[in-house]
Amino acid sequence: MLSIKNLHVSVHHKEIIRGLSLEVNAGEVHAIMGPNGTGKSTLAAVIAGKEVFEVTSGEIIYKSRNLLEMAVEERASEGIFLGFQYPVEIPGVSMTNFMKTAVNEQRKYKGLDPLTASEFLALMEAKKKLVDIQSKLTNRSVNEGFSGGEKKKNEIFQMAMLEPTLAILDETDSGLDIDALKVVANGVNALRRPDNAFIVITHYQRLLDYIVPDVVHVLYEGRIVKTGGKELALELEEKGYEWLKESNS
């Protein structure tokens, strides 16, 4: 589904990702772990299409297409979803209007008729239950005045609404208490299907108790330095990242 080969990415002439390769197949959940500042969020943003990052070499093939040639919104309509580490507040744009626009623009891209108001509301009600999101939140402006936990739940809610093929969750667990963490994990698990895939970026093994990954990668200084099964996460939790730094220096 996603194939990244020898990717190099710079921002403001500073190289952040230095030769990263990654293969993600349908039905898989990949976890990417690693210390701060190693390029995890950069990788997520590059896949989503954030323009500030410059891909200097390498390629990203998604569903047999060159992802790097696609506009941000086209990637989204092709099924890429980025769960933001810091969801953005958009004053004045209601969640309902925002989601309705997003769902219908994606449908339009696929050549489908827009959902009617009642179809849309029914969809929204169903998905709200999935992430235990309160009705009042969808009446408010996008993320405005949401607590940290509400913002993260809202990301999962949007993911549920848009049913992506490849979802990248960028530290969705950070700042969550254990109950919110379970809600987020349950949401992800409910959406897992043989034809979609997840990349879960996290610092902590804790989330992976709930979202069990097929593959765990360790990202360090812009490269994947270690790949293993779910037990790798436990090892990291136990040993920390110091041993990585030593073995790579």
Binding site: G49, E73, F84, E89, I90, G92, A102, E105, S141
Partner: peptide, 29 residues
């Protein structure tokens, strides 16, 4: 806000629609 623009586009909303939604929200006040 370019961050808000990216956020909307990352949900599949075209750039011109995103811009429109934000301007409209600004005016709605």
């Amino acid at each position: 806000d370019p961050e808000a623009m990216f956020y909307m586009r990352a949900r599949g909303i075209r750039e011109d629609t995103s811009r429109m939604l934000m301007m409209y929200a600004f005016a709605a006040d």
